[in-house]
Amino acid sequence: MNRRKFISSTSASSVFVGLGGLSLGSCASKSAKKITILHTNDMHSHIDPFSADHSEYANLGGMARRASLIENIRKENNNSLLFDAGDIFQGTPYFNFYGGELEFKLMSMLKYDAATIGNHDFDNGIDGLFAQLPHAEFELLSANYDFSNTIMAGHVKPYQIFMVDGIKIGVYGLGIKLSGLVGKNLYKETEYLDPYEIAQDTERLLKEEEKCNLVICLSHIGYDYPSKERPNDLILAAKTQYTDLIIGGHTHTFLDKPTLVENSKGREIIVNQVGCFGLYLGRIDFYLDSIQHIAATGVSIKV
């Protein structure tokens, strides 16, 4: 297995952590907790690995392989959550034949905790998505799609809070603008709301009212675009204040390492995306302790 790991933690942050450790003595480190976030995006019905004669991705990917990798990580740290950032459907005949049933069933078997909705998840219409809901034993999250006047009303939550080892983790979903991308006959009365505003409202709710320790965004708005007018994850990160991690999708962006972006309060947060087709699994480990780390300099980030 080829693990890509890059270390770029600043000396300032190391010093701070060092001082923090001193001031509260050894008890803080003893009771530190580790939360592991695993993620995929844009799997596009790639259930099987690519064939051996594929010119770019020979033998890579596949859900049976992803299953064993995730199982091993969970053995190492049971305090793990598994997310997907949308475009689960469309891309292989499995979708044409079964309409997404197998994708949802396998994601349930792999114990996905939540996913957001990508534009291609509307490819069999909103009714086609609705028809597969019985096979999904995970949450579908979208804070900026208003499904009130559709068959999906009541089946998609804006956010979900997970309690993992006493740590409260708030997760919200964001979807891309549908008009121009998906036929209106497919998404019907689904209403797209401004992702930046919705993200700010939702993260505030998760932090200030729900008192979440960690706030995670599952986004299918795309990593970055030549036109900065189009909502994207990098600008989203800069506009938020409480979100700790943005797990992205849509643009099929392969990153050498997760991106660090300064948020509106000057704190660095992680934006990540793992390309497409289930070729990679993203892994972000959060280490938590009892020390009140000060935003900009107090947290060390290794990517």
């Binding site: 297995m1 080829n2 693990r3 890509r4 790991k5 933690s9 952590v17 923090g20 009771s31 530190a32 907790k33 690995p49 033998n59 890579l60 990917g61 596949g62 859900m63 049976a64 392989r65 992803r66 299953a67 064993s68 990798l69 199982e71 396998l106 078997m109 792999l110 006493g166 740590i167 409260k168 320790n213 960690l214 700790d244 990153l255 390492k257 997760p258 992680i270 990540n272 793992v274 289930g278 070729l279 990679y280 699994l281 993203g282 892994r283 972000i284 480990d285 959060f286 280490y287 938590l288 302790d289 009892s290 020390i291 009140q292 780390h293 947290v299 060390s300 980030i301 290794k302 990517v303």
Partner: peptide, 24 residues
């Protein structure tokens, strides 16, 4: 025990070094 002290990000390539789970 509620404050993020550090984060670490990785991505893992799903190549042939990872076995496929038989039951799946």
């Amino acid at each position: 025990i509620q404050n993020v002290a550090s984060m670490e990000g990785n991505e893992i390539r799903l190549d042939t070094s990872i076995p496929q789970k038989d039951s799946i």
